[in-house]
Design a protein around this nucleic acid. Structure first.
Length: 181
DNA sequence: CGCATTTGACCAGCGC
DNA sequence: GCGCTGGTCAAATGCG
């Protein structure tokens, strides 16, 4: 976190999101418009949309990889490339717009592809708890495969070093196989 | 009671 | 121009 920071900057956005979705299944007489645009009005600042997407494979049987942060599942969709559905997680922190995308490998059901988007702006709850439970036998961290991120920007060679030190930045060294729930 | 999860619906972008 | 996929939100429900 000292330098790097790609660009992120963040702050902004998340403003005009009042558009009430209000499903048509409510009450009944709504008349007028049935639904307003309720999607991402990302329009301001054309110089955006370049967050560091880090995708890496992790050999694990559970989707909820305890990386030290609390994730709230906000969606699930089935992709065509995989017979398994893809789960979308988001950091529970209000100021943390970090998103996580968990998908199972279509070849190895024991391997899940986790794609992190953004960086945490707060400390991990696990750190505050100071939990230090020694994992008994779970050693899924042994297999970590870095995936490359294709750069859509044509003409601009955007293929910099792959992850490397970046991984340690997004993955805190605090992983305990303690699963609640 | 609170929080996390689940499911459905809708939109936006891209491809053909 | 239309279709499809992917992505996100919103409300409801269940469990602790």
């Amino acid at each position: 976190m000292t330098s790097s920071s790609t660009e992120a900057a963040g702050e902004e956005g998340l403003g005009p999101r009042k558009t009430d979705r209000q499903k048509q299944a409510a009450g009944g007489e709504e008349g007028g418009d049935k639904f307003n645009k309720v999607k991402k009005p990302r329009r301001e600042g054309e110089r955006r949309q370049r967050e560091p997407r880090i995708a890496f494979m992790t050999k694990s049987e559970v989707d909820q990889l305890e990386d030290g942060y609390r994730w709230r599942k906000y969606g699930q969709k089935a992709v065509k490339n995989s017979p398994y559905p893809r789960s979308y997680y988001r950091c529970t922190a209000p100021k943390c717009n970090v998103k996580k995308r968990v998908e199972r490998s279509y070849q190895d059901s024991s391997v899940v592809v986790t794609t992190y988007e953004g960086q945490h702006t707060h400390h991990s709850p696990a750190n505050l708890l100071r939990l230090a439970p020694p994992p008994p036998t779970t050693s899924f961290r042994g297999d970590l495969l870095l995936l490359h991120q294709p750069s859509p920007t044509s003409g601009n060679s955007n293929q910099q070093a792959e992850g490397h030190g970046l991984l340690q930045d997004i993955v805190p060294p605090l992983i305990h196989g303690n699963q609640r729930r």
